[in-house]
Design a protein around this nucleic acid. Structure first.
Length: 421
RNA sequence: GUGGGUGUAGCUCAAUUGGUUAGAGCACCUGGUUGUGGUCCAGGAGGCUGUGGGUUCAAGUCCCAUCACCCACCCCA
């Protein structure tokens, strides 16, 4: 019988790694709270039409990467391939917009896309992200980007990260630009690749993303989105840039940055990292002023970003940020079967007082238990043997200093408290 | 989805041109006289060589398929 393995593109996060995950999660929570954002948790699966409506029928995500199936009642269900759609759905469903004019939300969790796995890209992967609803002002854009920047700083990634910034204008501008771009390309359309030709009809802006050199050459003199900006679009984009400068957040303007999801408008941005190679997008997002309305809610502006947690951790591995500190305070060594009751009761008392205490369930030799204590990284070992049992005492050993003393069992908690404060 | 590469112990890697019982380091376990860890020494455990076929007297080594991983395309976080 061949052994059962995890599904292609999915990974176990083992104890050796989960500490890093927790550390990243902690940074995200801390920074989001610092900006007054609260966590929202939405279901892992949703109705399929949520994604076709928001992300876009013609995007790669919806057209070929989703895990979808028909539920018993015939409804098409999909494992979430991204999270903004769910957050917006929830925002509308619970009328969050009616409860406060600005909603500041963040999230974390697994997502599913059926892509070819490679480094920094899995079929089940994790993102954290933030969304802010209610303001269309540029200071909101700047705040969202600032959150991303603060998280990158805390993660030690700001040095190797580059912020690419662009505006794709408001919907009217985009519409005009679409036509202008199509008019520019149309004479030479046959020279473009099959995918580009398809995008010419479905999503012409994406053609700007092409990496084919000959296509880039033909696009050299293509009209720019900024040509179609309204005065408001222009002023908005300039304000965003000014606010970023005021906060000392470095960025470069990148007119080719279009982003693959349909719902974006105006500000779009992406942080890339030199630590990642081909899949170098660490974090990406933008404004989506029309999305709430598209999904049936009251017109509400919104902006947010999503970040790849696996990619963060890959990049963070090269930094000094991830710690390997032991979480064990005390390793409890018990030498004699007769002492087990005392050991359990004492260890329990220490745990109730907040100490992290590990004990050996194998009744191993003192040597083996001490070796294990050392490996656990515990700062202290408590040793309970025959001699100690006779005198209601216990040996307290400082494993770093290699010093030990005998303490009465009654006073051990107090003693440890004093030592660790 | 398309190319290319790689699969030997938990990890990193060995194994002449196909030729005995597939090795090493790290990690793990147990010891090194009575109750003390890290270093050192000794011993032990751990592999159907990713899986399934084929060629051969003989396959870790050659061929095919399949699966997984890596790189690029693609896409995105």
């Amino acid at each position: 019988m061949n052994p059962i393995r995890s599904i292609k593109g999915t990974h176990d996060i083992l104890p050796a790694d989960s500490q890093n995950w927790q550390q990243l999660e902690q940074i995200v929570r801390t920074v989001c709270q610092r900006f007054g954002y609260n966590e929202i948790r939405t279901p892992i699966f949703e109705e399929t039409r949520l994604y076709s409506r928001s992300v876009g029928e013609n995007t790669d995500i919806v057209s070929k990467e989703m895990y979808s199936w028909d539920d018993k009642d015939g409804k098409s269900i999909t494992l979430r391939p991204e999270l903004t759609a769910s957050v917006v759905r929830s925002f509308i469903q619970h009328n969050l917009g009616g409860q406060a004019p600005v909603q500041r939300l963040y999230y974390m969790g697994p997502l599913f896309r059926r892509e070819r796995p490679q480094k920094g890209r899995q079929r089940q992967f994790h993102q954290f992200g933030v969304e802010a609803f209610g303001s269309e002002n540029p200071e909101q854009d700047a705040e969202i980007i600032a959150i991303a920047w603060h998280i990158l700083l805390e993660c030690g990634l700001s040095e190797n990260a580059t912020l690419h910034l662009n505006s794709i204008g408001s919907p009217n501008c985009r519409k005009a630009y679409r036509e202008a771009l199509k008019n520019f390309i149309r004479p030479n359309l046959s020279l473009f690749s099959e995918t580009s030709q398809k995008r010419f009809e479905t999503n012409p802006l994406r053609i700007l993303d092409t990496k084919a050199d000959h296509e880039q050459k033909m696009l050299k003199d293509a009209p720019k989105v900024s040509d179609c900006f309204s005065d408001d679009d222009m002023a908005h984009f300039e304000s965003v840039q000014n606010f970023l400068k005021v906060m000392n957040i470095p960025f470069i303007l990148n007119e080719k940055l279009v982003r693959g999801l349909d719902y974006y408008s105006r500000t779009v941005f992406e942080f890339t990292s030199s630590a990642l190679g081909a899949q170098d997008a660490l974090l990406g997002g933008g404004r989506y002023d029309g999305l709430v309305e598209t999904l049936g809610g009251k017109a509400t502006p919104g902006i947010g970003f999503a970040a790849g947690m696996e990619r963060f951790l890959i990049a963070m591995a090269e930094t000094e940020v991830l710690s390997r500190e032991s979480k064990i305070d005390v390793y409890f060594v018990c030498l004699d079967e007769a002492g087990l009751s005392t050991a359990l009761s004492l260890a329990n008392k220490l745990r109730q007082a907040g100490f992290n205490v590990v004990s050996d369930p194998l009744r191993r030799s003192l040597k083996a238990q001490m070796r294990d204590a050392n490996k656990s990284g515990a700062k202290y070992a408590l040793i309970l043997g025959e001699t100690e049992m006779e005198t209601d005492s216990i040996v307290l050993k400082n494993l770093e200093k290699s010093e030990q003393e005998t303490v009465s069992q009654k006073n051990i908690l107090e003693k440890l408290r004093n030592l660790t404060n």
